[in-house]
Structures are given as structure tokens and as C-alpha cells.
């Protein structure tokens, strides 16, 4: 009686086997041993890393390497380690990781290095001994300072402001917040950080939080949003509260998600680097490292397209972050 169910299960698994194998076989038919680059985002389902992935895929196609892109779909910090350890056994050639938690992931990355797998990090660094290079789009310090300086510029360096972040426990959030606070204490004594609220990486929750902040702190001059879904969420809240212009909105986010509010004058500036370039550079650097063309001591890295990036110590610098505002946002479509 149970046989139908069992055979159904069998069918399912065979089907699964089928869909797993097809692309594999096609790729292997290319002949020769192709380099495999494994790219790890902090989390999946996030516009920022979709954009990184797009750049990485272009670079991988141009260089003729195989790209694996996978990452955790939930927030538990252990998941990144599990994926890396699986990749080690799988036998990839290079791992490029955006690290959700520095110390935790370094354990797994060191293990990869011990097995002869080259490791670089991008977006967020691991401990220096756990990787060869860090593709640095902007230091946490740089991000914190840029955000704080931009906030000060918009508010004439005085008054109350609040921060909306993804979750309280995310390490990059805390890192940025630390540098925002440091810059605040150092340069802007007349500004005051009155609240830090999490939005769980959801636009809807950010909108609710921002609405509450606006009514709880009537003297609020600015909302600083350091995770990408929070920027449009906060902008919508400011707009609905009728405080456009009176309360400024800035943050780290993608132009595509914020174009509407920037044009309406609700959001003043959105800060980000070219995420596609970041993904591409991560792959290019990973391949160069594996092929031996990128070594410690280099001072410049030239990619296939001819662009040159500065190498400082064990870091590849992507360049300064952009500030998108009403004047330039139409030039960018990511």
C-alpha cells in the first residue's frame, strides 16, 4: 500500500538527479579543467548581492571560468561556514567570500587555505590571516565617515537624528554604527543620535519604525538608513507624515530602489559603490590569484578590460563610494 508513495519519492529524487546533472554535463563538455570560483554573498534574496552577482557572472564569462554563487537564505551565522566547508570538499579552486561574521567564518576560511584553496574576501573582510586579499569597496570607517559627513552637511551639523539598521546583531551594521558614532563624537558635538531601530531587513517594517520615530522625536532632522530596504521605507514614512524636506533621508542603498524618492526630493542622497564592479573585481582578483598573476607586493591590478585598481598591502581598492542624488541618479541603473 505504501509502494505508490515510495515510487513517487523515487521519481522525485530521480527528477532531482536529472535537473542537477543537466547543466553540469553541458559545462564539462567544454573540455579541459576549468577554474571554479565560488562566490559567497552574505545572504541571498538581497538586491545588493543580486547586483554583485550580475557583475561577477559577466566577469566569469569573459574569463572563461565556472562561477558558483550560493549563500545562506536565513540569518543564522553558522550557515556561511557550512557552505564554505561543503565547497572545500567539493574541491573548488578559489573562494571569494563576503563575511557575515569575521571570527566565525575565519575558522572555515583557514581550513580552505590549508587545503590549498585560494581565498579572497570582498564586501566585508575576515581576519587577515584567513585570506590572501580583501577586495575593499570602502572601509567601514570610510562608510561611517561618509554617512556622518553627509548627514552633517544636510542638517548644518546640528539637531537630532536616528539610525535604522537591518538587525541589531548583524556585524557589519554594528561596525558601521561604531564608526558613525566615532565620527559624531569627534566632529559634530551639536548633533545627537537619539535612537537606533532595527527593521529586520524589511521595507514594510522600516516604514513602521520610521513613522514611529517621526512622532516620538518631533525634533528629528534626519533619518540615516544603513541597510538598503530601509531607505525607501523611511522615505515613504517621511512622505506620508508630510515632513518632506523637513526631515532628511539618507542611507546606503541601490539607485533603482530609491530613484522615485530622490526625484521627489524626499530622499536627499543615497550612498553606494558600483556593486556590479565589486562583484566583477572579486571574480577577476580571485582568478588572478589562482593563476599567480596577483601576488602580495603588487601595487596595481589591471583587469582584462583594462581598468586599473590600486593594491594597497593586502587590499584591492575599488575606489571611492558614490553619492547618488537628484542630479546624477539617472546615470545609474542598478
Amino acid at each position: 500500500m505504501i509502494k505508490p508513495a515510495l515510487s513517487l519519492l523515487l521519481c522525485g529524487l530521480v527528477f532531482l538527479a536529472g535537473c542537477g546533472r543537466a547543466p553540469e554535463a553541458a559545462r564539462d563538455a567544454g573540455g579541459g579543467k576549468r577554474l571554479t570560483v565560488a562566490l559567497l554573498p552574505k545572504s541571498k534574496g538581497n538586491a545588493y548581492f543580486i547586483s554583485c552577482r550580475a557583475g561577477a557572472e559577466k566577469a566569469a564569462r569573459a574569463l572563461g571560468v565556472e562561477l558558483l554563487f550560493d549563500g545562506p537564505t536565513d540569518t543564522d551565522p553558522a550557515k556561511q561556514n557550512e557552505i564554505i566547508e561543503n565547497w572545500i570538499t567539493l574541491g573548488v579552486d578559489v573562494i571569494a567570500a563576503a563575511c557575515e561574521n569575521r571570527e566565525g567564518i575565519s575558522t572555515a576560511l583557514r581550513k580552505a587555505q590549508a587545503r590549498g584553496i585560494k581565498v579572497i574576501t570582498y564586501d566585508a573582510d575576515a581576519l587577515p590571516d584567513a585570506r590572501a586579499f580583501f577586495v575593499n569597496q570602502a572601509t567601514p570607517e570610510g562608510i561611517g565617515q561618509t554617512l556622518m559627513d553627509e548627514a552633517a552637511r544636510l542638517t548644518n551639523a546640528e539637531g537630532e537624528f536616528a539610525v535604522i539598521l537591518s538587525t541589531l546583531t548583524a556585524s557589519n551594521m554594528q561596525e558601521w554604527l561604531k564608526h558613525i558614532r566615532a565620527r559624531l563624537a569627534e566632529k559634530y558635538p551639536r548633533m545627537k543620535l537619539v535612537a537606533v531601530r532595527p527593521c529586520d531587513d524589511q521595507k514594510d517594517k522600516a516604514q513602521t519604525e520610521a513613522t514611529t520615530l517621526l512622532s516620538a522625536h518631533p525634533n528629528l532632522r534626519l533619518l540615516m538608513n544603513i541597510c538598503s530596504p530601509a531607505v525607501p521605507g523611511a522615505a515613504e514614512a517621511v512622505k506620508q507624515a508630510g515632513k518632506t524636506g523637513q526631515v532628511k533621508v539618507i542611507g546606503l542603498g541601490l539607485p533603482s530602489e530609491n530613484r522615485r524618492y530622490v526625484k521627489e526630493g524626499v530622499t536627499d542622497s543615497v550612498i553606494l559603490w558600483k556593486t556590479e564592479d565589486l562583484g566583477a573585481l572579486a571574480v577577476e582578483a580571485a582568478v588572478a590569484l589562482a593563476q599567480g598573476t596577483l601576488k602580495r607586493g603588487d601595487t596595481a591590478f589591471r583587469n582584462a578590460a583594462g581598468a586599473t585598481y590600486e593594491v594597497r598591502g593586502d587590499q584591492l581598492l575599488l575606489g571611492q563610494p558614490f553619492i547618488f542624488n537628484r542630479d546624477n541618479i539617472d546615470q545609474f541603473n542598478f
Binding site: D74, T75, D76, P77, A78, N81, N101, E103, G104, S106, T107, T167, L168, T169, A170, S171
Partner: peptide, 12 residues
């Protein structure tokens, strides 16, 4: 296993 402890351990 992770070499770290943080408040979001074991979410989900």
C-alpha cells in the same frame, strides 16, 4: 564549532 557566540545564534 563557530569559534564565536552572538545573540543571533540558532535563529530558526
Amino acid at each position: 564549532r563557530l569559534g564565536q557566540a552572538r545573540a543571533d545564534a540558532g535563529t530558526g
